[in-house]
Amino acid sequence: MTKTWIFESKPAILSAGISGGPFEKESPFAKHFDFFSDDLYNEEKSFEKAQRSLIEKSITNSLEKGQVTESEVDALLMGDLINQLTPSGFAARQFDIPYLGLFSACATSMQGLALSAALIDGGYCEKVLTGASSHNAAVEKQFRYPTEYGGQKPPTAQWTVTGAGVVLVGKSTDPLAQAYIEKATIGRVRDINVSDPFNMGAAMSLAAADVIERHFIHSGDTVDDYDFIVTGDLAEIGHSITKDILSERGVSIPDEKFLDCGKMIYGNRPEVLAGASGPACSALMIYGYFLDELKAGNMKRILSVATGALLSPLSFQQKETIPCIAHAVAITSHKGGVV
């Protein structure tokens, strides 16, 4: 039987490095991020290089704020959406830290956090850096049309976040501990039979609902144990469908508790259509805003559910439906366990 991973030692998030692009600078949550590039190129020659530079910036900031040097970090777990994870791999080239590349599409942030907590709880590592990144124009180029192409996007389309969110994870006894990782439920790949790459939220809804339901079954927790259940980038349509599927399966989450980073990050800007997406979406919001709230004690415990669509430009042209994944990680402000 599958089960929830319970981290007895409660590994802690020690510091975060969050970078974004010019559009993210206008986010209502911008004060929780610490670096913004002036344009999509960030003084580099291509979008992919710009993404790499944002990752480097976030890693550097995270190391600095965590008061550690590269040699003290045992592992770097990173991922993004670009072919062969080149932005992550190329950024890792700059650091003397053992590196593992991760891919769960936009669910990479929570895959990384769950694995980091497991590595620390299992005694394999003392300190781990993990994060995820995306770049709006680099993703458009790979998955859709050239950035300047004048195609009309449907209202279900989402806006890929530009940025990188990285956290340093360590032992709960560390004096810099900001929030603690309690448990994680690893998702199963689910397919709800959506093949439209401009309707990713709907495609991901079943995977999200599945992992949330399983988290409650396997961990024994109830909705009441959490202040918020935060999904990654389901956006308007996907978030509503997820709620429907959950209530059909007997898990009812009140609206005010059920949030989505993709709906939140840009406020109400019409040009983002249904909402935001991309691995950086959950990384920026969870490691930026929600971590700050947990640290400040405004929230006691959240369930962070990052969601990813496992498609490629080839797979949707070959008319395949979009299989999706979601990973859930419970993060708490409280070291002691019972809140």
Partner: peptide, 16 residues
């Protein structure tokens, strides 16, 4: 693995 049952579900919230 595929649950076509939900096709109706997804179209309910679809934005035309």
């Amino acid at each position: 693995q595929k649950e076509p049952l939900f096709q109706a579900e997804t179209s309910r919230h679809d934005k035309k």
